[in-house]
Amino acid sequence: MSRLIDPILLRTLTAVVRSRSFSRAAEQLSLRQSTVSQHVQRLEAQLGRRLIARDTHSVAPTPEGEAVLGFARTVLDAHERLERTLAGGAVQGRLRFGASEDFVQTRFAEALRDFRASYPSVDFELSVSFTQLLGEAVERGDLDLFLGKRRVGEAQGLLVRRDRLVWVGLPSALPERDEPVSILTFPAPSITRAIALEALARESRAWRISCTCASLSGLRAAALAGLGLMVQARSLIADGLQELAGTDLPRLPEVEFILAGPGLQREPSRTLAHDILHADIWD
């Protein structure tokens, strides 16, 4: 190759692969979908390789695309760390961040560590609650940014990724066909709780709530004890548990993970949002 690769093209490629969608990548990058397509085409032309395989149903990297993606993440990480190191030392103040309970059990700490390295002088306040309550805190001016969930089709926030809700637990907790489903759930106003109960009601499936707990670690303990089934996003299944499909269990819809709040438009919380968007915290 006779010239360097534009990091902007690499950033677009990683967004398309991560979101598995040109339209969702455009939303994350604040670009038009046609611009995202042009970026990928320019990168493919420069490298002389097809990087993205796409049809009417799916978008996925080719083997060459997977190889380029690994290098792209290294280049982008170094580029962004340099920019933030040069700009971050003088930034002081406070960042008030909220996260729904599900995410605290993931590799979310890695995104926080990267943020701390870029902004060592910023005081960080973390609130853990349900998405609805976090949204209300933003409206009151008590939070700058939060990471939460929304139903597919809702407009709140910036889309991070989409995943399917599934039934989770131990196989021994699966009910017989004529038995009610024992549910382990967060209290209201949990989105996953509402979706699970709506799905059961639509199919007239008998159920009972055998455990309510505001802590994910508490629900995991109840599930490991075989007390019932919980509902989680497939990418967030807790250690020791597994996705279950059993007699008359209704299929659950997808849910979307989002970032929301005025911090999306200003530093230093905009940097944290960027770290979350580009971190593999669900893997």
Rank of each mutant, 00 (worst) to 15 (best):
L4H: 02
L143Y: 05
A67F: 09
Q41V: 13
D283M: 11
R3C: 02
G89K: 02
R202H: 02
V128R: 04
A238G: 08
V91Q: 13
L277E: 12
F22K: 12
H39N: 12
W207T: 05
L145D: 05
H79F: 13
G263H: 05
H79L: 08
F108R: 02
Y119K: 01
T85N: 03
F97E: 02
I276Y: 03
E66N: 12
P175E: 08
A260G: 00
S121C: 04
D77R: 12
A111Y: 10
L51V: 04
S129G: 05
R220C: 03
P7F: 01
S30Q: 06
A25W: 03
F108H: 05
R220E: 07
T56Q: 15
S129T: 06
I195Y: 09
G70F: 04
V122D: 00
A194Y: 09
S100R: 06
G141S: 08
E139Q: 15
E243F: 05
G48Q: 01
R205W: 07
D280P: 00
V68I: 15
G141I: 11
S215D: 13
G93D: 09
V122Q: 00
R42N: 09
T131L: 03
R202F: 00
S269H: 07
L170W: 03
R96L: 13
F108L: 14
G141E: 06
E27D: 15
Q242E: 14
H278F: 08
E110F: 09
R96W: 13
E254P: 07
E203H: 13
R3F: 05
A245R: 10
A260P: 01
R94I: 09
L170T: 13
G98D: 10
G48L: 02
I195M: 12
A245M: 01
R177G: 06
